[in-house]
Nucleic acid binder design. Structure first.
Lengths: 193, 193
DNA sequence: GTCTATAATTCGATAGAC
DNA sequence: GTCTATCGAATTATAGAC
């Protein structure tokens, strides 16, 4: 993006991005300072400007993440809830990307730019992924509720860190959540219990 | 809290608090400035300091809100999900308090102080309210999941404003969510669909 | 009680030497 | 490509006049 394309520059760029995600995730957009990000990348603050132009452009680059949902078509409908929950949770647990998803969810609460990123990602990757395996009608009607449920779990566990959701293992959490997901997917009027 | 106790002072204090909640809700803790809050209250910035001591103490005062859940004991178990959802959503829709709950949820994502407020409120008011109507065991195990689901709906609707959850009427939303709530309350191992 | 004026920081961004 | 130095703006907080 910026001029340099040498391997050295690429490593620097990646180091900045990594440090930026750490700081943005920890303190949000406003409190995270370019100075602190530069310090985290062991580099001069002005380099951050040189590589990314501005704080806002750096933020955009840090928000560019992927939910990584696989193609669900052909999944046994009976196991769809567990599969969906497990695949949805996996990238949140991963720390190798400095918690890009946690960063996105966290900042979306107070930053409209991040919120738009998240809405777009959910629509593009989540709803579309569901439309493949459910019909268009079911997906349109149910994906909203499903997204809300999964966002709730993610927010409770990774952002708010509320017990007991934050303490469970991923498999235990998937088992706990799956029944509600199944209900949301079934999408019929409530039959007694 | 601060010196004055005259009726004039009380009105000023309330005006500051109201304006503070509006700004904190709209921009989060960091971006909301004392200057803007003072302007919203049609008052001098230094008065905010005089009344609340510091920006942080003002923030604490603005976060002191109530979920307003009624006593659920005696509620028809069959109608518990709808009742719970409806009562949970009601104060979020109310604008008379300048969106105190939205403010709390929004800021909890990037401010540890707000997060602690929210965790405490959920534990004190939500879990306790459920323990009354469910047993201790069911409440302890299920309230976490229930809280996650309801937080997910609130976050999706009021903070992220993701469609279609954000567009539905409250009754329609309650009907949509209730089945999943019932499943979460039932809390048994998933029986096939 | 309310306001003016300003102190003391801190930050994003720029210019330019090397 | 990397760093030094600094500008200009914005912020919280304080001191003191009225």
């Amino acid at each position: 993006m910026a001029h340099p394309a040498s391997p050295r520059s690429l490593r620097t760029r990646e180091a900045i991005l990594r440090a930026a995600r750490v700081r943005f995730a920890a303190e949000g957009y406003q409190r995270a300072t370019i100075r602190a990000i530069a310090a985290g990348a062991s580099i001069d603050p002005s380099m951050v400007m040189r590589y990314f132009g501005s704080k806002e452009q750096l933020f955009d680059a840090a928000l560019d993440v992927d939910l990584g949902l696989p193609d669900l078509t052909g999944t046994d409908p009976e196991r769809l809830p567990q599969t969906l929950v497990a695949h949805f949770l996996a990238p949140w647990e991963d720390d190798s990307d400095e918690g890009s998803l946690r960063l996105l969810l966290r900042c979306a609460a107070t930053n409209e730019r991040a919120a738009e990123h998240l809405r777009h990602m959910l629509h593009e990757q989540f709803t579309s992924s569901l439309t493949g395996v459910l019909g268009h009608e079911r997906a349109a009607a149910g994906s909203g509720l499903l997204a809300a449920q999964l966002l709730g779990v993610a927010f409770t566990r990774y952002v708010l860190r509320l017990r007991p959701i934050a303490d469970l293992s991923v498999p235990a959490l998937a088992e706990l959540v799956a029944p509600s997901m199944r209900t949301a997917l079934a999408l019929h009027v409530p039959s007694p219990l």
